[in-house]
Simulated assay, not measured.
Amino acid sequence: MSTNDYRIVREAAGVYPIAAPLIHLEGDERLALLDTFLSKSSDFADPDTTREALALRADGSPFALVLQVEGDEDTWLIPRTPITDAEVTEYVGALEIPEGVSVTVAPEGWSAVAVEGPLAPRVAENFVDGDIEDLLLHSVVDVERESDDGQGRLARVGTTGEYGYLLLTTDGEADLAQFVELATAVDGGAVGPDGLARVRAEAGMPYYDHGFATLSVAEADLSWIVDWERIGEFLGSDELVRPAADSPKLTPVVTAPGTRIAPGAPVIADGERIGTIVWTAAAGNDTEELAFALLDDPFVVPALDVTIDEVTAVTVTLPRVLSRSSAGASA
């Protein structure tokens, strides 16, 4: 990968199109439909806000992590994890759609573009009236378009721990080009998937790029995104198991720069196998290599020396890098 992509997301503003299929819902009972398959209740899904939720399979395994963008009269779902149009269409086709509700996968004419990095506000500010700082995290605002039939909605939301904004638009090609032009002006630009994946992994969000493998909700450390106290069943809820203190858990490990380990490799401590490597993060940060292992209890602790295919490694905490956005680097 180009380490410049990593630098752009960490230091400037990285622009990328959303590749996942968009899902558009309309109708008065659309929130009732969402309650049948999302892991969070729609009781607190207010207009002009965003939130993330899991869509589960009937067996309780995660199907997709989605961003819900709520409007006054419609809802957008944007998959955050790798998924195809065909998989989404099949999933939606198995749902019981209430009368008067429409669900459209990959609606014609619509797309989405995102920008993330400490200087991302310098890009997004060109799409709003007033101060970009007035757009709060997880909030959504309509974007005025030059054409009478153009539409757009800007959300302050990201995936990397740096500042992030996502634009839903009917002028995707032009908006993507403008995003790139504005980002280039602050030493940023378009970025590929590897640079984003590395920053996301360092923030503790590897599943955005890797999916879920065969992990359960608890093993993937995604129990925080399940509303365990909600009233009523939803798809897969009967099969969900609350995480226990002694459950295997996803744990980050690092190795020396230039050493690469493979998914599936055993993790050894004091001659005993204690887990398995699930994902390895993309390169980009030349100070260390990063991977994620599913480790048994009681080995889910930081600073544990382990061996992976004869490579020395150590368990660590997240985030691996303090975001510049948290230090107010957008000024």
Rank of each mutant, 00 (worst) to 15 (best):
M1V: 13
S2F: 09
S2P: 15
T3W: 09
N4H: 11
E11Q: 15
A12F: 15
G14R: 01
V15L: 05
P17K: 06
L25D: 07
E26V: 15
D28I: 12
D28K: 07
E29M: 08
R30E: 14
A32H: 10
L33S: 06
D35R: 07
S39R: 01
D43R: 02
D43G: 07
D46R: 13
T50E: 05
A53G: 05
L54I: 05
L54K: 01
S61N: 11
L65R: 06
L67N: 13
T75I: 15
L77G: 06
R80V: 14
D85H: 12
L95R: 05
V101F: 08
V103K: 03
A114T: 08
V115P: 01
V115Y: 00
V115L: 05
E116V: 00
E116I: 00
P118M: 05
P121Q: 04
R122T: 10
V123P: 00
V128K: 01
D129W: 00
D134C: 00
D134N: 06
L135P: 05
L135R: 03
L136R: 11
V141Q: 06
D142M: 08
R145Q: 15
R145E: 15
R145W: 10
E146K: 02
Q151V: 05
G152K: 03
V157A: 02
G158D: 01
T159S: 15
E162W: 01
G172S: 10
G172M: 06
D175T: 12
V180F: 04
E181G: 09
L182N: 00
A183N: 04
T184I: 10
V186M: 04
A190S: 13
P193G: 03
D194T: 12
A201H: 04
Y207E: 11
H210A: 15
T214L: 08
L215E: 07
A218Y: 01
A218F: 03
S223W: 10
I225Y: 02
W228I: 06
R230K: 12
R230D: 11
S237R: 05
D238P: 00
E239D: 09
L240P: 08
A245S: 11
S247A: 15
V254L: 07
P257C: 07
T259M: 07
R260V: 12
I261E: 04
G264V: 10
G264F: 07
A265T: 11
V267H: 02
D270L: 06
D270P: 06
G271C: 10
I274F: 03
W279Y: 13
T280G: 01
A281D: 08
A282N: 12
A283V: 14
D286C: 04
E288D: 12
F292W: 13
D296T: 09
D297E: 09
V300C: 11
T312V: 13
A313R: 00
T315F: 04
T315Y: 04
R320K: 07
L322R: 05
S326E: 11
A327N: 07
A327M: 11
A327V: 08
A329E: 09
S330D: 15
A331N: 09
